[in-house]
Design a protein around this nucleic acid. Structure first.
Lengths: 330, 330
DNA sequence: ACACTCCGTGAAACGGTTTGCAGAGTTGGG
DNA sequence: CCCAACTCTGCAAACCGTTTCACGGAGTGT
């Protein structure tokens, strides 16, 4: 059925070894022979069988990516980065959608382990025990999380918070709310840390609220609490929440950025599609995906550079403005 | 390194065949032996090597999914459906992000073909020639597209348009704009067909505009054209466009749904997060993904049921309202 | 004639699993 | 008590397409 190296060999009138070499070590075969082989392969539509190749080389040409939820724009962006970089290196990606369930996650990692050259793991909330059970099966790199010496690509959330706080401070805001996401999230911790460092330095009072679910609804829920605390600006854990905030503020008749400034986190596509385009801290999600695959592929010893930090950047759009004369409290 | 069937056999003090059988044909081994094997496997953390199994059974336990862009919420939803259903059947999914490039698409299909049991192909715009070159390598099922006898799962876009038009007609609208998406899209054709059938039947005049890119910007661009044509409602090719329309209408001071009704297509998550939650035609994207995998897995002869139609449904939210007294033209 | 290079060949891995076949043990009927 | 039938387990081959090792033949320079 499928066309193999043998068919190509027969058509090109050479041996299978020659065909193999024509592809893998081209300058070891005579140019003329190579031409014959390549032509035969072309007209037969030959594609090397990666599984069989992996059998002998030990490298499968596949890389695994596990995310908690593909439909979440943050993770689909990371995934896209992985896929792009993998394709550049002639690799294919295995996707595991863990459906937010750590047990499933571990199980998927196990199922993939044998047929991939490495796994990039985006699981902000999986507990360490599960994680360590899984280590060693296959080279692993974490995204946006550090855990016991495992290589990781990290986004500098704390610095993002600093930029956001400085921006607000420069606009004259002196009392801002921070809407925190899931308590167990590594990124969440870092952001909180950044906040606690940046706020005093900028002479800003930060009101910490939450934790809230990192969703649109979470933002809705958080808004009323923030309003009750008399802040003039809100910094949300992510864009989804920020959009919820925008929505709720509109419903309560608070104008943005007139009466209240709002900043999100991530810079998902949707952030620039709100009625007032959202000021947000851009997380380099695709870049992180690419970097993770880089580490997996380039590095024979994946422990060489344990952590790769990627910068974040504040994108100022339309939801932040100078401090209003009178804060919005109702 | 990896724990194999042999390790389990040694620990359980049985032969490898018995271990194999304990997993694949459980009632062929003595219950007590089976218990011993299962326990040994458990404590060793044994996971069968799917690649090796595929070697002899011919089935890999993998299914391939190719989409033009994972970051597009429509496709990530389909993908999620595929992943969910695949996991239920103990399968893993291979993802190929074709980056909107048909050549890449064909290449990826080729690369995956040998290591999957079937491929679900979401490529609304790939040309037929490329498509046929790829057929036969591996069982294939199309999503939202019909092409020469290939099995497909389809969403009833035309009926969705009918529902939308009837809804608008019932609200008193008599002149509506349809903002079409990419000309070569199968879904687009069907929607246009549905429109041309439904509009006269409902005594509604449909102004066809476009094609526009199926994006936020496309919606922005289309809005001014629609306004110039003096319509009271807009039906957009997808939610992304509809959100662009909402945005542009707000910028031009046209109130929604007061002066203009807007309907989208797809019902992506974002549709319910706009300032006025978007009325839209829900496309069963996840269900489509699941159905596609179903066809691939359940059906030994994938030609049995060539086309599976999934219903669409109008979700009425806040962007549609009865016809205003005076249409918004400026 | 010898050594050497260049290029191509045949055949052996590669490897974890499934599976056909046979044998060991047990049961039951004649 | 013997043989047939049945149940369970073990041995070893087969599975796949590729890479790669060891080798040989032809040509070339010395």
């Amino acid at each position: 059925m499928a066309v193999t190296i043998h068919h190509v060999a027969r058509v090109a009138e050479v041996s299978v070894s020659t065909v193999s070499r024509a592809f893998t070590v081209p300058d070891m075969v005579h140019p003329q022979t190579r031409r014959k082989v390549l032509q035969a392969a072309e007209e037969l539509g030959y594609q090397p069988n990666r599984a069989a190749r992996g059998l002998v080389t030990g490298r499968t040409g596949n890389i695994g990516v596990v995310v908690p939820d593909v439909a979440n724009p943050f993770f689909s962006a990371v995934l896209k980065g992985c896929a792009a970089r993998a394709r550049g290196a002639q690799h294919v990606v295995f996707l595991a959608d863990a459906a937010e369930d750590p047990r499933v996650e571990a199980e998927m990692v196990g199922a993939m382990a044998k047929q991939v050259d490495g796994i990039v793991l985006c699981s902000p909330r999986e507990n360490s025990a599960e994680l360590h059970r899984v280590v060693g099966t296959s080279p692993l790199v974490l995204v946006n999380r550090v855990e016991g010496g495992l290589p990781a690509v990290l986004m500098d959330s704390a610095d993002g918070v600093r930029q956001a706080v400085e921006h607000l401070a420069a606009l004259g805001h002196r009392r801002i709310a921070y809407l925190s996401g899931p308590a167990a999230s590594w990124a969440g911790e870092k952001r909180l840390g950044g906040l606690r460092a940046a706020a005093p330095a900028c002479d800003v009072e930060a009101v910490e609220l939450g934790p809230f679910p990192p969703t649109f609804q979470g933002g809705i829920q958080a808004t009323d609490l923030a309003l009750a605390r008399g802040v003039t600006a809100v910094l949300a854990f992510n864009d989804l929440m920020a959009i919820g905030v925008l929505n709720r503020l509109a419903a309560r008749g608070v104008s943005v950025p007139g009466q209240m400034s709002v900043i999100g986190f991530d810079d998902i596509e949707m952030a620039s599609m709100t009625t007032e385009p959202l000021t947000t801290v851009q997380m380099p999600m695709e870049a992180a995906g690419r970097a993770a695959v880089d580490i997996l592929l380039d590095d024979p010893q994946p422990a060489t550079e344990l952590q790769r930090w990627l910068p974040t950047q504040l994108i100022v759009r339309s939801t932040t403005a100078p401090l209003p004369a009178t804060p919005a409290t109702r």
